[in-house]
């Protein structure tokens, strides 16, 4: 790869600008970067169009166009996990999500919870969840997990999440707590189809007890939803 191409690729990745690296793999590798609004060197129109479609769908892979094979390598901003509540579970959930490659943002207006000592090198927002969520603007590449149990904090975040395309929405809380939560959201006008997007209680049923185990259950469920894995065949 040429130094210029690699430099531009890294610049795009750092600024979270979506870009597709396109390599002609039949020869010795002609290469180009395709952005949403421009291309850095000449490519057939059909290849540019395909690269943009794949970039939107985040589908890296090889395409044969006009008898030539092109490797289209999509670089989108990392998937995000927004956690509402800088609670004990979050202390393991945040690093687990980071290991799995997610950008993690923890929202909690309570200063004694969201401290750098409890969350070293985690992006902390000490704002009210409704303000923070509007600012963070969850999209189809975002997961939203509420862990506070406190309707004052969880509900406003859920309202924004349910009005977004967030791919995974989950709430901690017992079935009773969750039923009451759904009643409150119903009262706000959300219909059943929308409320069914919420995974509550959060996480796959693996008998999780400790905060770390609950974090594992949540990460497992999030992963399964991300990859559209079918319902788990759990032995009775």
């Amino acid at each position: 790869m040429k130094a210029d191409t690699f430099g531009a690729l890294q610049t795009a990745r750092r600024s979270k600008t979506p870009v597709a690296l396109v390599i002609g793999i039949d020869g010795d590798g002609s290469e180009a970067l395709v952005y949403a609004d421009r291309v850095d060197s000449s490519l057939p129109e059909a290849v540019i169009a395909e690269a943009r479609t794949r970039l939107r769908d985040d589908k890296t892979g090889v395409m044969e166009i006009g008898g030539t094979h092109w490797f289209i390598d999509c670089h989108n901003a990392p998937l995000r996990v927004i956690v509402v509540g800088a609670v004990h579970i979050t202390q393991t959930l945040a690093p687990m999500a980071a290991i799995a490659g997610y950008e993690v943002i923890v929202v909690d207006p309570r200063a004694s919870f969201a401290t750098p000592e409890r969350f070293p090198n985690v992006h902390l927002l000490d704002e009210w969840p409704d303000d923070a969520m509007v600012e963070l603007a969850p999209d189809a590449r975002t997961a939203v997990i509420t862990l506070t149990h406190d309707p004052k904090l969880d509900d406003p975040a859920l309202e924004v999440a349910l009005n977004s395309e967030a791919f995974y929405i989950a709430c901690l809380g017992s079935r009773r707590t969750h039923a009451r939560r759904l009643d409150r959201l119903r009262a706000l006008g959300f219909d059943e189809a929308t409320l069914n997007r919420i995974h509550g209680p959060a996480g796959l049923p693996i008998g999780a007890v400790s905060p770390a185990e609950i974090a594992i259950a949540i990460m497992a469920e999030l992963t399964s939803v991300l990859h559209e894995a079918g319902p788990l065949a759990v032995a009775a």
């Binding site: 202390q91 945040a94 690093p95 980071a98 290991i99 000592e117 090198n121």
Partner: peptide, 13 residues
């Protein structure tokens, strides 16, 4: 596991 764990996420990211 201690209750005071604080795991540096950047070490993994």
């Amino acid at each position: 596991m201690t209750d005071n764990m604080s795991i540096d996420a950047s070490a993994f990211a």
